[in-house]
Design a binder for these strands. Structure first.
Lengths: 207, 207
DNA sequence: GTCTATAAGTAGATAGAC
DNA sequence: GTCTATCTACTTATAGAC
C-alpha cells in the first residue's frame, strides 16, 4: 500500500507545472510524463485518468491558497495591516509561479460547478470574516466606508495583472527587460499597499 | 469571388463566441459548426484550418482593441480625463463580453511570439504616446509623479478582475446575485475612476 | 513499479456527391 | 456552397511482459 513517494511526487510536480502553464485542455499526458522523466503508462498507474490527475492538482492548489488565507485571517490585526500583509505574501507567491492566477481563473470559468463547493467552503468563509471585520472598523470610524467586494476586486486585480500580462509588460518594457522585471514586480507591493492605505485611511477633516 | 456574407459571418460570430469562452486549445471545430448551424466541412471550406480560423478571430479582436485605443489617444484631453474615458468604454465592452480579457491574456501567455508583432505595432505605439503625455503633465506639476506601467497595470487590473473572476464574485454575492451583478460591475466605473483621480490629483499643500 | 506495445476514442482535415 | 462519409493524426487509456 505504501507507494513510492519519489515517483508520485515527481509526477505531481510535473503535472502541476504543465497544467498551470497549459491549462486542462492544453496539457498533454505525454508532456507531463516527459517532464516527470517517466512514461505515460505510469501516469495512469498512479492516477487512473487525466481528469483525476487534474482534480488532484486543483485540490492541491486551491487548498494551498485556502490555507494561507485562513492562516492570515487568524492573526488579530487591523484590516489595513491585514491587506498589506496579504499583498506581501501573495506577490511573493506569484513571483514563484506567475501562471497561478490565470490558471485558476481560467479553470473556474471553464467549469464553475467543479469549484462551487470548494469556493463556498474555503474562500467565501474567509471572506465572511473579512467582511465582518471591515464593516466593524468602518462603524468605529477607523477606516473609510468601502464596499468589501470592490476593495477585494481592486487589490486582487492590481496584484494579479502584471503577472497575468507578463509577456505584454515584457514587450512594453523593451530590450533591457529581464533585469527590470523582478524589480518592477517587487515594486508592485508598495504600489498596492499605498492604494490600500489611501483608500482606507480617513482624511482627518478635523485635524 | 463574392462569398456568401451571411454564412461566413455566422461562422465568424460562432467562432468568436466559442474561442473566447474555451480558448484555442479547448475549442472544438464541431462546437463552432453547431453554434453556426452548419457542419464541420464548411468551416474548412471557408477557413482551411482551425489555426487559420483562430488567427482570423485573433486579428479581429486585437484589431478592435487597438482601434478603440487609437481613437481614444487622438482626443486632445488631459491624462486623467483620458483614463476616466477609457474606464467608461472598457467596462462597457466587458459587460458585453466578459471572456475577452481572460481570453487575450491566456492566448498571449500560451503563444507570446504570435503576438509580439501585433503588440509592438498596435499596443506599444499607443503606450508611447500615453507615456509622453503622462511625463509631460508630471513635469508641469499638473499630476503626481507615477510610473506609467504601474498606473496602467493598476487600472487594467482593477477593471478586468471582476469580469475574469465572475463565477467567484457570483459565489461570493450569494443567492440574489443576478440582479446585483450588473449593478456591481457598473459601479466599478466609479470605483476605478476615483482611484485614478486620487492617484494623480496633487494634494495642494500650499492651499 | 515500470516498461513497450496497442487499443479505443476523439478531433481536424479531405473526398466526393448533390 | 453545402452536405455525408471517410481518412488521418493525435491523445487518452489499457494489456501484458519484465
Amino acid at each position: 500500500m505504501v507507494k513510492d513517494i519519489s515517483t508520485e511526487q515527481r509526477i505531481l510536480e510535473a503535472a502541476r507545472r504543465v497544467f498551470m502553464k497549459k491549462g486542462m485542455a492544453g496539457a498533454r499526458m505525454q508532456e507531463i510524463a516527459d517532464e516527470a522523466g517517466i512514461n505515460k503508462a505510469l501516469l495512469h498507474y498512479y492516477f487512473r485518468s487525466k481528469d483525476k490527475l487534474f482534480e488532484h492538482i486543483l485540490m492541491e492548489v486551491v487548498g494551498r491558497i485556502a490555507t494561507s488565507l485562513k492562516s492570515m485571517m487568524e492573526l488579530d490585526i487591523p484590516i489595513i495591516q491585514r491587506l498589506c500583509f496579504f499583498v506581501e505574501i501573495y506577490v511573493d507567491v506569484l513571483m514563484e509561479n506567475r501562471y497561478l492566477p490565470l490558471f485558476v481563473l481560467t479553470e473556474i470559468n471553464q467549469n464553475p460547478e467543479r469549484f462551487a463547493s470548494m469556493i463556498r467552503e474555503h474562500i467565501v468563509v474567509n471572506m465572511q470574516d473579512f467582511i465582518v471585520q471591515l464593516e466593524d472598523e468602518i462603524e468605529q470610524g477607523k477606516i473609510n466606508p468601502v464596499h468589501p467586494l470592490h476593495l477585494v476586486s481592486s487589490v486582487l486585480g492590481m496584484i494579479i495583472f502584471p503577472f497575468a500580462a507578463f509577456p505584454l509588460i515584457e514587450e512594453a518594457m523593451g530590450d533591457n527587460f529581464a533585469p527590470l522585471a523582478r524589480n518592477f514586480l517587487n515594486q508592485r507591493k508598495e504600489v498596492v499597499k499605498e492604494f490600500v492605505i489611501n483608500a482606507l485611511t480617513p482624511k482627518n477633516h478635523d485635524k
